[in-house]
Simulated assay, not measured.
Amino acid sequence: MNRYLMQQGYSSCSLEELSALNYHVRLMPAFCLFMVTVGLVFNEPSIHFFLAALGFAGFISKQYHPVDAAYNRITRRPSNKKLPAINPLPRRYASLMGATFNLATGLLLYNGLYSAALFSGGILIALQLTVIFTHFCLASWLYEKFYAFLGHGDNISLAEARELRMKGALLLDVRTPKEHEKQVITGALNIPLPKLRDHDIYHGKEVIIFCNSGMRSKEATKIINNSALAKAYSLGSIQNAIKL
């Protein structure tokens, strides 16, 4: 279970879907990496303008990035798993960042500023290589940090959470096991979000949920409350859980 895949917004996916995404989510950055390299080598701004348009389309689309859609419809073999129809907001911001870099690189090439274009394209290549080999996406990471800073979501207050805990509410950590091991919150039960539906320990209880930034806790709260098997409250980020 790759923590960075969930950072890209795939927190609502099942383990089976995450398994499929683990490899195929690299398609888009790998394709863009190849095209960026070709554009720089041949000093061709139109390639970067095309990639910028593709990136802006990926930012707008809420279901599939165009490269994912092409894979499902054209290149996917029948034996392979189909990519889920989801293009999460953090990943869409990554498409927007890539589109911006490609637009800048294309404009620099168009105006004959090859050294500056090489620098801009080089940054983009480095970011794409990082995503390909680790799934770490700078744009998604920045989105998560900004999300935690703003405290988005209908989170309960610390006072409300403390009162619920005194009444016996379960404290649930939906981060990955590796994240949990790095920073353990005393008394919290760790069930990673993709495995939430496989457990019944929280059934019939009041549950207070937290994660790294508050994005996954919001999703987990929605899953539990929609199931009507328990009453869940989002506490938000781990920083709130530490204060609890």
Rank of each mutant, 00 (worst) to 15 (best):
L142K: 07
C137F: 10
E179K: 08
Y110Q: 14
P84S: 02
Y10G: 05
G106A: 09
L40S: 01
E163A: 15
S46R: 14
L107H: 02
I60D: 03
N190E: 07
A99K: 04
N22L: 11
T100V: 15
G214F: 08
A116C: 04
A116I: 08
L196W: 05
Q183M: 10
K205D: 00
Y71R: 01
Y143F: 15
L27D: 00
F136I: 03
S227G: 11
R165V: 14
G236M: 11
T100N: 08
S120A: 09
F136E: 03
L142Y: 06
A20I: 15
K145H: 12
M6T: 14
R175V: 08
G122N: 04
N87F: 06
G106W: 05
E181G: 03
P192H: 04
F149M: 11
I224S: 01
T130L: 14
L107F: 08
C211G: 03
L108N: 03
S157G: 03
G151V: 07
E17L: 01
L193R: 00
P78K: 02
A126R: 05
A52F: 06
C211R: 05
A220K: 01
R175I: 11
A30M: 15
A228N: 15
Y23E: 04
P192G: 13
T130C: 12
K218S: 15
F146L: 12
M35I: 10
A85N: 06
A117F: 07
Y4D: 08
T105C: 13
P194C: 02
I201A: 05
F50C: 11
G214W: 11
L171D: 09
K218H: 15
K243E: 12
I86Y: 13
M166C: 01
Q7G: 09
N80H: 10
A161I: 07
H203R: 13
N111P: 02
I242K: 13
